[in-house]
């Protein structure tokens, strides 16, 4: 068990290192004009060169990478170029992260608390009307492009329930739609997989044996099937952290929530390279940490885990 945790920790750290390096290098492959945004054509050759030198971009890529890591270890994320010129990115993020974190966590909690029981109920009453409606609903939510779906939510829910179209941190009712939008997709994903895993497990031999030894319906569902179905879900959880992230990028911008997701879109549109880099790294890091936590959770739930290698899961 300890060995497994150590291995996974090491794996996560290595992943983080590789991903950060890759993203850094990828961004250096961008065509030159990408560094200047819309003003590129107006600038003279010399100004461009001096601007690059000022930002340290004239040095070899490897030197830049080493610099970058040095600063990162010191907690220095660099400075914004265009969004707020020469303002430390760390300071910008400081104000933005709490919003994203709050909304993200609430959304995750909502999706878990709704999605898992929903999937379990659908499996329990498989083939009944409720299950059919649920399945159809999930199909539609899964099939519709996220962007279109969230637009619909914003457009219609706001008018049906008379909710504000924009976010206001002091007005709790304005939190409802963004959280609903972000969780909707995760709820459906959870419900769908939970239902599938439950149904898979219901048909397993051990459930037949449990029934044969006289265990009754509800007890089987909860003590035997639910737990077994939940184990692969646990591994799935971090993946949904990822989808929550993506959802929040879009939703935050849509509702003008002053969080990091909306910020990413802003800085992409304004071509602020350091900001894009930092935010992409931030999200990648959240992704890796999420996966790592999911693995730990699995190890806690499944006694087999310390014996099975990860690559051969399932």
């Amino acid at each position: 068990m300890l060995e497994y945790i150590a291995k996974r920790t090491l794996g996560a750290v290595v992943s983080l290192f590789i991903v950060i390096t890759l993203i850094f290098l990828l961004l250096r492959m961008m065509p030159m004009e990408g560094y200047f945004g819309a003003e590129y054509d107006k600038l003279s050759e010399e100004t461009r060169a001096s601007m690059l030198a000022e930002k340290g971009l004239d040095k070899p890529v490897l030197t830049q990478l080493v610099e970058f890591y040095k600063n990162l270890l010191k907690g220095d994320l660099g400075k914004s170029w265009i969004f707020r010129p020469n303002y430390p990115i760390a300071k910008i993020l400081e104000k933005k992260i709490p919003y994203s974190l709050k909304i993200g966590l609430i959304s995750m909690a909502v999706s878990l608390l709704v999605g898992i029981p929903l999937g379990a109920m659908m499996a329990r009453f498989k083939g009944k009307l409720g299950d059919k409606i649920g399945t159809a609903f999930i199909a539609i939510v899964e099939a519709l492009p996220t962007a279109v779906l969230m637009l619909f939510v914003q457009l219609y829910f706001s008018s049906w329930f008379n909710l504000s179209l924009l976010f206001d941190k002091d007005n709790p009712s304005t939190w409802i739609l963004p959280i609903l939008s972000i969780s909707l997709l995760s709820i459906c994903t959870y419900a769908m997989w939970m239902r599938r895993y439950m149904i898979d497990n219901i048909n397993m031999d051990y459930v037949k044996l449990a029934r044969a030894k006289g265990v009754r319906g509800g007890r089987i569902m909860f003590l035997h099937v639910f737990k077994n179905a939940f184990v692969p879900m646990a591994q799935f959880l971090p993946g949904s952290v990822l989808s929550t992230i993506i959802g929040s990028i879009y939703v935050e911008h849509l509702y003008s929530i002053p969080g990091t997701g909306g910020l990413l879109i802003d800085v992409i549109q304004r071509q602020d390279n350091t900001m894009v880099q930092t935010l992409v790294l931030l999200y990648a890091a959240i992704g890796i940490i999420g996966m790592f936590l999911g693995d730990l959770l699995m190890a806690l739930l499944d006694p087999r885990i310390s014996f099975v290698k990860k690559g051969d899961d399932r």
Binding site: V14, V19, I23, S243, Y283, A284, I288, G311
Partner: peptide, 28 residues
């Protein structure tokens, strides 16, 4: 298998949409 699985484990940690954003950002 081993090498590919390791590579996959690293890449799959990053949301695909993020990679998509990044690549689209770099290529105009």
């Amino acid at each position: 298998d081993k090498v590919m699985t390791e590579i996959y484990n690293v890449i799959s940690n990053v949301p695909q949409t993020l990679i998509l954003i990044l690549v689209s950002y770099i290529l105009r």
